[in-house]
Simulated scan of single mutants.
Amino acid sequence: MDESTPPPPPAAPAEPSPPPPPSTFGSPTDFLKCSGQTRRGILSCLDGYMNIAMEQTEEHVNGRVTNSYGDTFIRGNNVLYISAAEPL
């Protein structure tokens, strides 16, 4: 580069990254319902790690029974939430 050549223009500032897309889940409740998969049964044991032992367990997908398991153990790190059934 010689003295008669002007210096290159400064680089344009980097474009700001776009904001993250809005959440596809409106609320935590919507998130919990999104898989449509639940286990229902009689709670026989629960510990501080949320490990769950259940009896007469049924798997429900989108409100329909898809499997029956009898006795079931669910490891606590797979548990999103626990709720009590409505009284009969």
Rank of each mutant, 00 (worst) to 15 (best):
G36T: 09
G36L: 07
Q37S: 07
Q37F: 08
Q37T: 10
R39N: 07
R39G: 03
R40A: 13
R40V: 14
G41L: 07
I42N: 08
I42Y: 04
L43E: 04
S44R: 11
S44N: 07
C45D: 15
C45M: 13
L46C: 05
L46D: 00
D47K: 01
G48T: 09
G48K: 08
Y49C: 12
Y49G: 12
M50V: 04
A53W: 01
A53N: 02
M54C: 04
M54W: 05
M54R: 02
E55Q: 12
Q56C: 11
Q56H: 12
T57E: 02
T57A: 11
T57R: 02
E59P: 00
E59T: 10
E59C: 08
H60D: 06
V61E: 09
R64V: 12
R64F: 12
R64E: 14
R64P: 03
V65R: 05
V65A: 05
T66R: 13
T66L: 04
N67E: 08
N67M: 07
N67Y: 05
N67S: 12
N67Q: 09
S68C: 09
Y69I: 06
G70R: 00
D71T: 09
D71G: 06
T72P: 01
T72K: 02
T72I: 03
F73Y: 10
I74K: 03
I74P: 01
I74V: 15
I74D: 01
R75H: 13
N78L: 15
V79N: 00
V79S: 00
V79G: 02
L80E: 12
L80P: 00
L80S: 14
L80G: 12
Y81K: 11
Y81F: 13
S83D: 14
S83F: 10
S83Q: 15
S83P: 04
A84I: 07
A84T: 07
